[in-house]
Amino acid sequence: MAQKKYMLKGLLVLAVIATGLALPLMNTPSNVGNRLIVATTTSTADTGLLDYLKPYFDEKYSADLVWLSLGTGQAIAVAARGDCDLLLVHDREREDEFISSGNGVLRVTVMYNDFVIVGPPDDPANASGTDAIRTMRKIAESGASGGCVFVSRGDGSGTEALEKKLWESSSVCGFLLSGWYLSAGSGMAATLRVANELGAYTISDRGTFYKLKDSINESLSLVVICENDSRLLNPYGVVLINSSLYPNINSDLAQKFLLFVTSPEGQDLIGNYTVGGRQLFFPIYGQTEKIGLPREYETIAYIENLRKGG
């Protein structure tokens, strides 16, 4: 007699199938062995830089480089919980804070690129130039009289941090609730698209802006309004996380990654990476004074010492 499948059987079948499906998933924890988890910003992940570096690093150290593409704010929060092995971000103030609170042990500038202030081609605020402060003031003035709109990332990212700093230096305040200032709460590419739709101004890292421009050039009408101001420099730092606080992190491989990106080979690779014929990141390890930043003597000495020891 053909018996129907009853509950016990049914649940048993469910359990067996679920286990069968789940077993191949139950591999090793994500951050043991040779896997290195870098928490980084959308600007390094989404521009493809890490995709480019991965095979070189993986081969050299038999490693598996993976990354979490987050806003700087979330990246640092994730690191502060010990959920990644290394930070590669671009918000100097918060990086320093991370170090001084004891969560991080070392921070070094490895590369930079720069921000550009972009806006509609007709530049209604008449803000174009090479003085970021002037541009920001012009945008605020025009915005206050209804002449233009500014879109902010609004996601706690390093880009937003820079934007806030620029407003501060331009002595523009009280803009948060004004009609011309919109907070997108999104990543860089999404914010650029919002600004593009609205014919608005925004601040973007150069890499993401050109990457987007190349991939959807017909529909992205935004142009660069202001560039080449030292205030728009965007240095990227690698931060080693305090392994005595988080014994589970792969600090050994994290150190190797630090040595890799600061090595001549790593620095060359960064400099050689181009998108659509444009260089997006500029290696600057050990030469920060060249872009008007203080030289990082102690950190460099420490790293070079490590290199010799390894």
């Binding site: 998933l25 139950m26 591999n27 924890p29 994500s30 951050n31 959920d83 589970n248």
Partner: peptide
């Protein structure tokens, strides 16, 4: 459990 960032 050390299973953050895993399929599990």
């Amino acid at each position: 459990l050390r299973i953050l960032y895993t399929p599990s």
